[in-house]
Simulated scan of single mutants.
Amino acid sequence: MKTSERVLELLTRSETYLSGQELADRLQLTRAAIWKAIEQLRKAGYQIDSKPHVGYRYTDSDTLNQTAILQALSLDLDLELQVFDSLPSTNLKAKELGLNTTSQTPLVVIADHQTAGYGRYHRDFISPKNTGIYLSILLANKSPDFDPGLLTTATAIAVTRTLEKTLALKPTIKWVNDVLVDDKKICGILTEGITDLETQSLSQVVVGTGLNFLTEISTFPPELQARVGTLAPYVKKNRLSRNRFIATYLNEFFKIYQNYTTGSFMDEYRAHCDLIGKHVTIQRPTGTLEAQVIDINGHGALVLENGKVLNSGEVIKVRKV
């Protein structure tokens, strides 16, 4: 661990100012080394306040801080967390790490920036630095009958609960994996699997979440700006940091993940997904279809009036009956 990282960890864990001498003594470094580390942290975007003859204090900001996230997690939550400045994709990194571990402990991969982020159908997911939340969770699969639709819908509810708790918003869900605020997409969810080549069984699952936290709409191509949203106005008003949002989301995700296979959250999902009773046009790899939605079943699939049950697809138009 670098000196600056060690200093940041001590400052983050402290509720009071720490003097330069105290930091130096704890880390067995010189005062000059501590001062240099503090300056490096400030240049990296961390907010380190200082008072003459008192010391230094960390204040949470929008710069990702692994220690701050871990501190805000539920005490009973056991997971591994890795934070990166930049990755091609957090889902790709999680899958790469999954191939080299047999650990049953959930692994969370977070990046400040993605250079090749993607969503369903490998569509580009624009992921500028310093403003978004790009997070993937690697989970050991314990079920021979894994239901990706149910886990995706559970994740959407974890996101909506987090938005309601931290920003007092009323988000909606565009079936199956987009979370909307003010009728615009602010979050996408992508669930992928890792297959054991020897047994040909699904050994691990990756749940990726990409969220426009402080992202400016002007960042997106003109053709997307009418459909894409951002939490920026709400985040700034509530002075909410990425670290606190991430910790709250992880707490909500693992709270629901414990029993997600029961589908006990599906009434909550239906309440957020305003499709029942509507006529929809759905885009699928085989073409489009139009039908009225009569229900969302216990596995998160659409039940249509013509008897079809759809586990995947993209709703591209909604009309009232």
Rank of each mutant, 00 (worst) to 15 (best):
M1E: 14
S14F: 05
G20P: 01
E22P: 02
A24V: 12
R26N: 15
R31W: 04
A33N: 13
I34V: 15
L41A: 04
I48P: 01
D49Y: 03
D60L: 04
D60H: 09
D60Q: 11
T63Y: 00
T63L: 02
Q66I: 07
L73E: 13
F84D: 08
L87Q: 06
T90M: 07
K95I: 05
L97T: 05
T102R: 11
S103R: 07
S103I: 09
Q104P: 00
A116E: 12
H122P: 00
T131W: 01
I133E: 01
Y134K: 08
S143I: 04
D145Q: 14
A154N: 09
R161N: 13
K165N: 11
L169R: 07
I173Q: 02
V176E: 03
V179H: 05
L180R: 00
K185S: 00
G188V: 03
I189S: 02
I189V: 10
T191A: 14
E192R: 06
G193W: 00
L211A: 07
L211R: 04
F213L: 06
E223W: 08
A226Q: 10
R227F: 05
T230G: 06
P233R: 12
N243I: 07
N243A: 10
T248E: 13
K278H: 11
K278N: 08
I294D: 03
D295R: 08
I296L: 07
V309K: 12
S312A: 15
I316L: 03
I316Q: 06
R319Q: 14
R319L: 12
V321R: 07
